[in-house]
């Protein structure tokens, strides 16, 4: 564990908590893509199945439990409790265009052709594109609530910090995991456009609005 990975995990946790609190406090999931939240929940479920098979550390297990429970709670809030505020008309990204190629690729490119490893690989590839429905929804509505932009900022930052962690580990430990690195790069690059808008608009107190 190094400081970049710890900062990444904290950033990820902050993002998940921000979203959960935003929906719970405002009792509304306006502007939130339920499809992305379903993808994130499946990312965690498929990646953390080893929660029941191997114990790595208290930190590792507790973070996995927190991620899985918060993401499932978020999906529940969006599709059940605050369903009336769910903006389905703008959450129209065809997720099958993500899940099918990702599913196929995880069978072709993986570290080991075993069920757990293929599920882990599927989860890594899926996570790299899971934010697309959310970004697509923002491009369709042409704007995002400021709290939602903070959620996206920390969510995008987390994998960017992991990338630094992997550079650090390659340099000092000679460790590298090409699957995680390539997927992490794709994932972080997808946020670049958002990061630019976040820094130039939201951090200057303006509302994030895309040229519709």
């Amino acid at each position: 564990m190094n400081i970049f990975r710890l900062a990444g995990d904290v950033s990820h946790l902050v993002a998940i908590i921000i979203l959960l609190l935003k929906i719970w406090k405002t009792r509304s999931c306006a502007g939130i893509s339920g499809k992305s939240q379903i993808l994130f929940a499946s990312v965690f479920v498929t990646r953390y199945l080893d929660l029941f098979t191997i114990f790595i550390s208290l930190y590792n297990s507790s973070m996995k439990i927190i991620y899985i429970s918060c993401s499932i709670a978020t999906v529940y809030l969006v599709y059940f409790k605050f369903k009336a505020t769910y903006d389905g008309n703008h959450d129209t990204f065809r997720v099958e265009f993500l899940v099918v190629p990702v599913g196929g690729l995880s069978f072709l490119v993986n570290h080991d052709f075993s069920p757990m490893e293929i599920l882990w690989t599927f989860s890594i590839y899926l996570e790299s594109v899971a934010i697309l429905p959310q970004l697509f929804m923002i491009s369709k509505t042409g704007e995002a609530e400021t709290i939602t932009t903070h959620y996206l900022f920390f969510l995008g930052l987390y994998r960017g910090l992991y990338l630094i962690n992997w550079i650090w580990r390659y340099y000092f430990e000679g460790f590298f995991d090409l699957i995680a690195i390539v997927a992490g790069l794709v994932q972080t690059v997808l946020y670049c456009d958002f990061f630019y808008l976040y820094v130039t608009k939201v951090l200057k107190g303006k509302k994030l609005s895309l040229p519709a």
């Binding site: 995990d9 590792n60 996995k64 000679g174 460790f175 090409l178």
Partner: peptide, 10 residues
Amino acid sequence: TSEERDKDEL
């Protein structure tokens, strides 16, 4: 350098 998966990473 060795390319492998780290099960410790989240």
